[in-house]
């Protein structure tokens, strides 16, 4: 059977890994290539790098990091943050990224998802959806959680699938960095409504939160940052726990 994936996420700012809470309060957590290697050695299934500043200058730093990671690690990795065009995508894929994650640009210009998946294949196009719970339901936010997209999360998820996205990276802004557990209702709703894999993100905390996101949230993969960066758990510890809780993992 296909294993459920554990994906450490590295938020990169000015070439360094940092971690925040609810998308703000950023702290320094380490060197990206070094952390990537550590996770690889610890049995991470994939890696995600999010360039959270993504200005033109930082893009060049990111490209160098991507090249270095691709030379040293032989597991899939995704790069996201500030991707606006087919050219941006091409540049990252050529540098050695296996997938790119598109967020704000996908909302502003949905055709980009279609063009990119036709050009490079759906398998390398991940659409990131950042979601906040509001009275009227789950709403999509863009620009790193700063701006509402006035879109319903479920409708948007179905639409990105139709446009050719290969995976959805679904983040609960409310849970991001809180370690209170993933938003299981949101994850289950989206995962069961689309036929592409859903990577749950935001809220990874104790070990139960990880078995819950698979067993109850029906996620295909779980993304986590703080619990790994600050050595709360190793990836192997998480996987051993999941195995004993009836979640198929690669060890």
């Amino acid at each position: 059977m296909l294993a459920k994936r554990i994906i450490p996420c590295l938020d990169v700012k000015d070439g360094k890994v940092i971690k925040g809470k609810n998308f703000v309060n950023l702290e320094y957590a380490g060197d990206p290539v070094e952390l990537a290697r550590r996770y690889n050695d610890d049995n991470a299934d994939e890696l995600v790098f999010l360039d959270i500043t993504a200005s033109y200058e930082n893009r060049k730093i990111m490209i160098e990091i991507v090249k270095e990671v691709a030379k040293q690690l032989f597991i899939p990795f995704t790069v996201g943050g500030g991707i606006n065009s087919i050219e941006d995508i091409r540049e990252l894929l050529n540098a050695g990224a296996d997938k790119v994650s598109i967020n704000t640009a996908a909302v502003k210009n949905p055709v980009l998802i279609k063009e990119a998946s036709e050009k490079f294949g759906s398998q390398c196009i991940v659409v990131a959806i950042d979601v906040k719970k509001e009275n009227s339901g789950w709403k999509v936010y863009i620009k790193g959680g700063k701006e509402t997209a006035s879109l319903d999360a479920l409708e948007w998820a179905k639409k990105v699938e139709k446009l050719g996205a290969g995976e959805i990276l679904l983040t609960s802004i409310d849970r991001d960095g809180t370690k209170k557990g993933y938003d299981l209702k949101l994850t289950k709703l989206i995962s069961e409504s689309v036929s592409i894999p859903v990577i749950a993100s935001g809220g990874a905390g104790d070990l139960t939160s990880l078995s819950d996101v698979f067993n109850k949230g029906k996620a295909d993969a779980a993304l986590a940052a703080s619990i790994f960066h600050y050595n709360k758990y190793s990836v192997s510890e998480v996987k051993n726990y999941l195995k004993t809780n009836n979640v198929e993992v690669r060890r």
Binding site: L2, S122, Q123, S195, I196, P197, D220, R250
Partner: peptide, 10 residues
């Protein structure tokens, strides 16, 4: 199942 199959399998 979900298509594409994405991830680690035996």
């Amino acid at each position: 199942g979900k298509v594409p199959q994405i991830g680690w399998n035996n």
